[in-house]
Nucleic acid binder design. Structure first.
Lengths: 200, 200
DNA sequence: CGCGTTACATTGCAGTTGTAACGTAAACGG
DNA sequence: CCGTTTACGTTACAACTGCAATGTAACGCG
């Protein structure tokens, strides 16, 4: 194999340029040539690393997903070992919110991809977060807290878990469209957590 | 004024065709000619009623908004006079959810417009629901219920109102992306309402 | 040293896009 | 009855799109 170049590195370089274009001018402005100029390369090179535009989009979508997951795990590890269910959920859900500029840009792109994939189901499979798995996990946390007396006994863990995820998603949309402030989003999330968890 | 034609009727006819195209093939597939063929007219006629594409988009966006508002008011009037705050909120919020095919199609288009407007702020002003007004109204309902002893006294009305709207928005997204079922969405919404309202 | 494979760059092409320009028919006001 | 205004239809055009084709240079392997 002649000419040693890191294939994956080049692809992420191009995908990063794509995401910058998408965050700035919208997904509709993403074209081979625009991405190429944004990345500072020729359109021929882009075409060399992605045989088709859809292939490029799929890859970029994967990059967004990876970054999101990384953000969450970072928020969790920052929490230390064996955190209380409430603190844990707060960290995870707040980590999902587009609070800083970087995650905001990613959120905008994810939103655009969501609309893009709503009609192109084969492209949306990768985007569709494993929500059921997430719901089950959160519900488990709630059950644990209930057993320890830290959460209200009356609540349905599954419904509460879905509600928590939904409220996070909704707050994310409000943040992306500048319909609310980060402080208010956090406050609302905390209020919802207070509904589930009894003490203090 | 020669040739009597209802201007507004023609425009809504074209806008309806636009929305059909957008719901079926995505917003990116919306072009003057596609809309024209979908509406069964010539592209020249479309151009006659909308001098520019953006003007057409704005109008179509307004149509979506009107339909959404009509759906909510219909749900409310179906409720009868002087409903209890909890029933009222249930009707309004459930009316916001894309449960049937018609509102689902509108929801998909609204989602696409949201992503479209996220980068084109001048186009998004019309889409940005008057959230603060909505929050204030819901918060008032909660306060009324609190005074009547029908809602938990401890909850912050503003935060709870924002949370209710956010959970509705999030459930709407889950419904649009087929990540949940209508039954589950309603169940989650009810569970959240039960957090706010105490009795039964 | 070939030489084949890889990594780009350049060019071309057919199709679609938004929009302007021009043409025509019909209805009303005078 | 005539001219102006409105309601379209048709055509043209420059810009852009994704993609295929073709080029060229460089590196590793035999």
């Amino acid at each position: 194999m002649p000419k040693v170049v890191d294939h994956h590195e080049r692809r992420t370089l191009i995908a990063d340029a794509l995401l910058r274009v998408a965050a700035r001018d919208g997904l509709e402005a993403v074209s081979l040539r625009h991405v190429a100029t944004e990345a500072g390369v020729t359109s021929g090179m882009v075409q060399h690393y992605f045989r088709t535009k859809d292939e490029m989009m799929q890859f970029a979508l994967g990059v967004v997903r990876e970054r999101n997951e990384a953000r969450i795990t970072a928020a969790v590890t920052r929490l230390g070992p064996a955190p209380a269910p409430r603190d844990f959920l707060h960290a995870v859900l707040a980590g999902l919110l587009p609070l800083d500029d970087a995650s905001r840009a990613d959120g905008l792109v994810a939103l655009a991809f969501l609309a893009y994939a709503a009609v192109r189901p084969e492209a949306g499979t990768s985007l569709r977060r494993d929500a059921p798995q997430m719901v089950a996990y959160i519900a488990d946390q709630i059950r644990t807290a209930q057993a320890a007396g830290a959460a209200r006994a009356g609540v349905d863990p599954e419904a509460a878990a879905t509600g928590l995820l939904a409220v996070t998603e909704g707050l994310g949309m409000y943040l992306l469209t500048a319909q609310t402030t980060p402080e208010n989003a956090i406050r609302t999330l905390d209020a919802h957590l207070a509904f589930v968890f009894s003490g203090s």
